[in-house]
Every structure is written in structure tokens, then in C-alpha cells.
């Protein structure tokens, strides 16, 4: 009789997201986690391959300097560098330096060698800089171009970004545009600044008006808010219908009991 009894039954509630109980479920979960890890490993291996590949760029035969890189090289560079973290990019620069190349991927020149000496050296600008930093590049231009790419890279792990298609790395190659002077840059910045100020003022006043319960205003570029008149017409229902009397019930019908009206308590 008792043999069929499966044992004491728990009176506790089963947790909602209960753990997988059967062997198969557990196996499925383990496999899923293993696949995630495998994917991460694959991505890491791919990034390492990309580092090794890019450490020998540019591939196009005619390239002479980073001023006019071959379009195919630029496209390759952009696609391969897409998933890099800044640290991977540093590895790439170092690997290129080991190969004797300038740290910027699109530059075919050899890196600068400043000859024997100590840890520090004088840069062209007169600053004292680490020799290692200086010897990473062939010129200051390449250093700026390489760092322009580096600041666009993301610290987030590669496997979290792999699925996002709109990560686009831009390359600073302005072969035709003249280098802008300090003044140009300042003027441009000033223009942006005033424009942005005006926009901000307009936005603020609109928000304030809304908060005060005023009518929405349209902000003009000069910052003066103009009210648009709104015509309000009230439509009132003045007619009141009288309820028709039925003539069946008297005023004190409610006091009647079986056709007899009690006289008690009325006085």
C-alpha cells in the first residue's frame, strides 16, 4: 500500500523560475552557456587575427604615405578595426612597431628612430617626451590620425557589440582639404556656440510657458515669443425639457398601504 507513496510532499511553494530539474534541461542550459563562451573565444581569436593582419598594412602596392591611402586599404582597415577595444588598438600599434612600421595602419613608412639615448627626448615642438612615444610614429600627423581612430573605439567587450551593425569607424584622411588654422577653428566654434545658445533659450522659454499653463508659443529666432489668438466660442444648451407627468401617481402615493393611507404620526 505504502509502496506507491512517493514520499512526503512539500508544502512550500515552488519558486516561480524553478531550476531545470530534468537531466535534459540541465544539459541544455550547460550547452547554452558553453556556446556563449565559445562565441566569445572565437571573437577574441578573430580580433587577434585582425591585429596580426593589420600589423602589416597597407597592402596596396602604390601607397607612399598616409596622405592618400588606397581606398581598398581604408575599407579593410575600417572593417577590421570595428570590434577593437582601445587596448587592442594599442596592441596593434605595438605590433606594427615591432614590424618596424609607423603605428598608423594606413601609413607605409618606417617608424621614426631617434638613435641612441636615454628614456626621454626632445620633440620637435620643444617639449620633453618619452622616447617610446615619439618612436611609435613616422610623423606627428600619423600620430594624430591614429589617435583619431582610437578615440572612436569603445571600451565595451567585443561580444556585446558584435551584433550592432551601425558601429562605423571614421578615418581622418583629408587629402584635399587644407589644414585649418587655429583662427578658423575658433570662429567655427564661436558660431556653433551662439547658435546653440539661441536654440537653448527658445527651448527654455517654451518649456516655461508650458509649465505655467500658458498657450503654446512659437519661438522666433530672435527669442521674442508671439501669441497666436485663439477664438473661443461657447456652445451652451439652454433648453431644458420638462418631464411629462404621467398622471397615475399622486403626491403621497408612497404613503399608501393597500389603498389606505395611515393617519398615524402625520400630525
Amino acid at each position: 500500500m505504502a509502496a506507491s507513496n512517493p514520499g512526503p510532499k512539500s508544502i512550500l511553494k515552488k519558486p516561480a523560475g524553478s531550476r531545470p530539474t530534468t537531466e535534459q534541461d540541465r544539459r541544455a542550459v550547460a550547452i547554452q552557456h558553453a556556446q556563449i563562451l565559445e562565441h566569445r573565444k572565437e571573437l577574441e581569436a578573430q580580433i587577434l587575427d585582425d591585429v596580426i593582419l593589420l600589423s602589416e598594412y597597407p597592402m596596396a602596392p602604390g601607397a607612399t604615405s598616409s596622405d592618400d591611402p588606397a581606398p581598398s586599404d581604408v575599407v579593410d582597415f575600417k572593417t577590421h578595426v570595428r570590434l577593437f577595444q582601445p587596448s587592442d588598438y594599442d596592441d596593434l600599434i605595438e605590433e606594427r612597431n615591432v614590424n618596424g612600421l609607423c603605428g598608423y595602419v594606413l601609413c607605409p613608412k618606417a617608424r621614426r628612430k631617434t638613435g641612441p639615448g636615454g628614456e626621454w627626448t626632445l620633440a620637435a615642438s620643444g617639449q620633453i617626451v618619452k622616447r617610446k612615444e615619439l618612436e611609435k610614429w613616422c610623423s606627428q600627423k600619423c600620430a594624430r590620425r591614429a589617435l583619431y581612430v582610437k578615440v572612436q573605439l569603445n571600451e565595451t567587450a567585443a561580444w556585446e557589440r558584435a551584433g550592432i551593425p551601425d558601429i562605423e569607424i571614421e578615418v581622418m584622411d583629408l587629402p584635399t582639404v587644407e589644414p585649418e588654422t587655429e583662427e578658423d577653428r575658433a570662429a567655427k566654434k564661436l558660431g556653433e556656440l551662439t547658435l546653440e545658445d539661441q536654440r537653448q533659450a527658445a527651448r527654455d522659454s517654451a518649456a516655461l510657458a508650458l509649465e505655467r499653463g500658458e498657450l503654446p508659443t512659437t519661438a522666433t529666432p530672435t527669442g521674442v515669443a508671439r501669441k497666436t489668438p485663439v477664438k473661443v466660442t461657447l456652445k451652451e444648451n439652454t433648453e431644458i425639457k420638462e418631464t411629462p407627468s404621467t398622471g397615475v401617481f399622486e403626491d403621497d402615493d408612497h404613503l399608501m398601504v393597500d389603498g389606505y393611507k395611515s393617519t398615524r404620526g402625520v400630525e
Partner: peptide, 11 residues
């Protein structure tokens, strides 16, 4: 060793 070289040892 360069960092990439160290990683490639594992492969």
C-alpha cells in the same frame, strides 16, 4: 614580447 605575441602563444 609584444602583447599580441603573448596572446598568440596560446594558439
Amino acid at each position: 614580447l609584444s602583447p599580441a605575441a603573448r596572446k598568440s602563444l596560446a594558439s
